[in-house]
Design a protein around this nucleic acid. Structure first.
Lengths: 339, 339
DNA sequence: GAACTTTATGCAAACGTTTGCAATTATTTT
DNA sequence: AAAATAATTGCAAACGTTTGCATAAAGTTC
């Protein structure tokens, strides 16, 4: 089943001999260096293709001190159930992969288990990658800060308003929280539950947006602080209903998965959505459109954010600096809330 | 913001000098080679940690001809909408990541855009990775077969019953399809729709299991062939209802996302689930539990499958052969079907 | 056609590990 | 105590690229 290759692997020197030129020329040709005549370049590239030749990245990385690899770390809050299964985080990783590829960079997928605490050391000193993209700030920025302070090219998906000495790209969570809440208010809600943990950076901003909207309105606020999971949301809303009855008429959920958990709890008790309780989520994952009723949500522009993340990382790799940046955010109005 | 490192990067030779031993000794010590006295090993490891030293993987890969990296390729059907957003595929990638890490291997995430068609060349000849895990067979096995024939260590997540000269690990899709259908029959269904494209390898097996169950029963069959997306399922069922009315009382969906799309179409028309139409999905993603009604589903043991995939890849890396293997599958009974 | 500039290629020295083999030291055997 | 064996460590040669510098060839100017 597993056939060993019969003929020895071709190397640059062999190809050079075949073409009757030096290794320098072939190397430069394959790297599209304009020092080499266009004609020669094309001929050598074709020869390489013919012979199924591929540059040995180990050697080239060693010599050039560049890897063209970016490490992507999914930064979970430890002690929280939010996991690799969170569709939103994975969507972000997917978009980042695309954005990296477009720049000819490769994606080394990692997590705290492999990388340990000293990311600078594990990824950069070891030449595993040229830079790092961290998805999610987590509650404790220690690892990120340590890496940034060590001079590692690094960007973070998170709340751009968090003060930091590294660029953070993310949605305008404050505006998102405000938009969602204003939308609920406009639909007539008077008692709006914030469902999520304001201690988390991004969610905290959404919470402050929520408060800002409530401040200018005649409505009551209530926080149900839970993990970022459907299950926790389901139990949280269930418990609220059991202990205090239907004491609210709107829910602003900190994510769509959370919103869908809440939706289930409401539907099980035949509470009408959006008539008895209106509901807005956050993220606009695929399920928001396919749930019944479909879920109004704040859409995060993950594609644009991913492109920005990669751009800012690239800037750092070239010695330039980069700043945090907010990406626009948008309310998607669906059936779970009243127009 | 971006501080260049001040002191030159430490290398093995520097560390050796500091410790007063040769580079060989340090290299062996850090690689835990028992040739070196345990005591010396520990001392050197500690010294390395103290000085924030990390082996240069580029150099070590070049010399040792091993990368300890595995490329994971998400193999979409081109022309199909099933995308990086499919929660199930991403769950599999997450589990594979964990399984690889446990063996000290790293995960290079890739797709056909980067890798092109000649995977052997792009990943293995270039020493980007030692082996490949392909997630999803796709409709055309050409790339996979070419790589396998070139002698690349390779395993595939897919339908293990497909004849192949490379190991395929996956669920017993035939049994899964049969279980789901038998469950619907047991609940009294007489007209069961198969929702999915039997031309896809895994789904084809599920379809055959469905047919096998129907054969022994007095029930009617109908296929609605669609892409593996919620949206396609929603439209497919909608159209069926429009053109033929409620001509079925059970749906066996080829995935949970598909089932949820169908569920939405049914709920919008106030068709009762499971009383008018019973519904079973496939995959048991997180949403199955949180939808309302919750979705009965065939659970794929992705964790076990991932461990097996990695084991079989490792076997090949060590020159042994490995066979395709089926992992057990299980019906999770929830509200969308009748007991 | 000599002197100069421009363009295209080659030479050879790194890059930082790992590892077969030799060499040394410590331990056991005779 | 010498000899033989076992346990540690060191030497030095790879691994296959990239790239600064030198050189050769071609084109330009006077």
């Amino acid at each position: 089943m597993y056939l060993a290759m019969n003929n020895k692997q071709l190397k640059l020197a062999d190809l050079a001999k075949l073409a009757g030129v030096s290794t320098s020329t072939v190397s430069r040709a394959l790297n599209d260096n304009p020092l080499i005549k266009k004609e020669t370049r094309d001929k050598l590239k074709q020869l390489a293709k013919q012979h199924n030749f591929s540059l040995n990245t180990a050697a080239s990385r060693l010599r050039s001190q560049k890897t063209n690899v970016v490490a992507v770390i999914i930064n979970f809050d430890s002690g929280t159930e939010q996991s690799i299964n969170d569709p939103f985080l994975l969507k972000v990783v997917g978009e980042i992969n695309l954005a990296l590829n477009k720049q000819g960079l490769e994606l080394l997928l990692s997590n705290s288990f492999m990388a340990g605490d000293d990311w600078a050391n594990y990824f950069i000193n070891s030449r595993r990658a040229d830079g790092i993209i961290v998805v999610g700030q987590g509650k404790d920025p220690a690892n990120i800060e340590a890496a940034a302070n060590a001079g590692v090219p690094l960007v973070v998906w998170g709340d751009p308003k968090t003060p930091s000495n590294y660029p953070i790209v993310g949605s305008d969570n404050f505006v998102g929280g405000r938009l969602a809440t204003e939308h609920l208010l406009a639909g007539g809600a008077k008692n709006i539950v914030f469902l999520g943990d304001p201690g988390h950076a991004e969610i905290g901003e959404r919470y402050r947006g929520y408060l800002a909207a409530l401040n200018t309105a005649n409505a009551r606020s209530q926080v149900v602080s839970i993990d970022i999971t459907s299950r926790a949301a389901y139990h949280g809303i269930n418990q609220l209903l059991v202990t205090q009855g239907l004491c609210f008429d709107g829910i602003m959920a900190c994510s769509d998965m959370v919103a869908l958990g809440a939706m289930k709890a409401l539907k099980e008790r035949y509470i009408s959505i959006p008539n008895d309780v209106a509901l807005v989520g956050f993220d606009d994952i695929a399920m928001a459109d396919i749930s019944h009723p479909s879920l109004s949500s704040i859409k995060q522009n993950t594609q644009r954010a991913s492109v920005l993340l990669v751009e800012k990382l690239l800037a750092q790799l070239q010695g330039q600096s980069a700043e945090s940046q907010v990406v626009e955010i948008e309310l998607i109005y669906r059936q779970s809330s009243k127009g």
